[in-house]
Design a protein around this nucleic acid. Sequence first.
DNA 1: CGGTAGTGCCAC
DNA 2: AAACGTGGCACTACCG
Length: 591
Amino acid sequence: MNCLLGPAPVSAGEPGLWWALAVADGASPEGSASQQARPVARFEPSQTARIVREAPERLGVPADRIRWTAPNIGGLSAAWLSEGVRVARCHDLALAQRILRARPESVGGYAPVVDLPVEQPQDEASSALVGRAPAGQSSFFDAAELTGGPDASAPDVLQLAAELAAQERAASASTHPARLRLLLAAESQGALIAEEIHATGLPWRADVHERLLLETLGPRPAEGERPPRLQELAGQIASDLGAVDLNPDSPTSVLRALQQAGVQVESTRQGELQRWIEAGGRDREQRRRLLGSTLEYKRLARLWTANGWHWLDEWVREDRFHARYLVGGVVTGRWSAHGGGAMQIPSAVRSAVLADAGQLLTVADASQVEPRILAAMSQDEALAAAGSTPDLYREVAKQGRAAGTRLQDRDRAKVALLGAMYGATTGDSGALLPHLRRLYPRAVGLLERAAAEGERGGQVSTWLGRPSPSPDERWHRAVAQTGTRQDEARAATLRRGQGRFTRNFVVQGTAAEWALCWMGEIRRRLTEAGLGTRLVFFVHDEVVLHGPEPEAEQVRGIVQQAAAAAGRLLFGAAPVDFPLTVSSVRCYADA
DNA sequence: CGGTAGTGCCAC
DNA sequence: AAACGTGGCACTACCG
């Protein structure tokens, strides 16, 4: 049972009111969506949480059978959460539309009934405004509030019903309807999860973080000044390199000073400086001493600027870091994060992530997801066999040795596989590719077909059916331009680049789908078990949960079962395992 | 002066 | 300097 939420139709003459519309499951016959729909409530848009609470009784349906349907569910969910209301299932019409319209011809020529752009979650400033307004409004209603007067262009609930029907027809018309429906459900569930993670927040001890900063950088400096330790290092660099007016924050300035001091590098990157030191032979120690202060400055300056006092002021409130995720924010379907750099919390500050008293953090990290995904997608039996062991790379090396290839050890196996998925052509991984192809023709074949499609300018899809974006008009023009040798070189470079993108897209995107299903399964199981433990953080293939210590053992089991269930959801009787590293700890840094 | 490209580093 | 995928973010240098 779908329950649609949206503005009353203009014809009803109820401006400013919303309706809840019950729509039976399954694709409705064309054009009859509104006839099958039954209005079950009319209410102020600030009352959606109440409507959600009352719905099971009004509809005579258990709460977990109701699929709440609206564009940008995240905005609604934020209001529901603030009133302690959590829903089991939803369908986000905007997120679904973004997936379906990316390649209409593969979903029966889907055309949106109404345009439903995916909205960014509000930043802190505008959510403060929303905080003064009655809770429970959808984001487009907020927009109307802020600009004064109702938004006449906001689609009404009957239009939304027609859109839902169009989306269901599109899913049915796709090559793999069940997979696409799973993707739309998982993406929608993601919107709920992202909002819940944001609302709950990752435990973050500001005092511990501040002590760390004090110990490594010295006391907090006045605004516009460097911390003492960095100031000291700046002086040290200047004297080591014999450059008086050196600005250590300016790569140009540092590079000039380095070159004048006889350091033969082309950039100031850490890796290149390290390589120069290592290349020093007998002089290595001397070189290390010469660049020591520069390298140390870079390390500490990064901590200061990215996760220093400013970051703490801005992003940590009452010992919680509230990560803002954008579901499907990356073209591949990965989540991105907005604000606070949630997807790049460096290991250096994870010691400030500490469970509350009596609680534990359960941290689960999925190992080697992408090669396992590749094995499952390509149904490459040999790679799948490697993927059914805890260390896929080690097993690949074993098979490589047995077959007499150059994939002799774990490191080479890893470099070869990662290189194949990224489209490396040079160096070790390029040289190992033929060996990998010999061992795993189906897996490498899948990657090479995806790359070829990209080079042609075509689209590829993930396992569940998320299409890659088409290259834009400029790309096509540039690729068609082959008048001169330079044109041809440029066209070839662009084609290869697009090929690398589509090659990686299928694997990265399918891995993101697995992770989405994993989290969805975790969420469902936590709810069904009635636990107080919550998801509080997510980074691509890692989840963090926070909850009462006595629940931890059960939670570890749930996280494990959810990973296996995600594998089965995507690939059926999964030919590969998705092993996790799971631990329950007081401190994130100890996981 | 604000916008933006370039640089470099963090995460996966 | 690019090579080998996806991002965010902070800083400098430069441009209109």
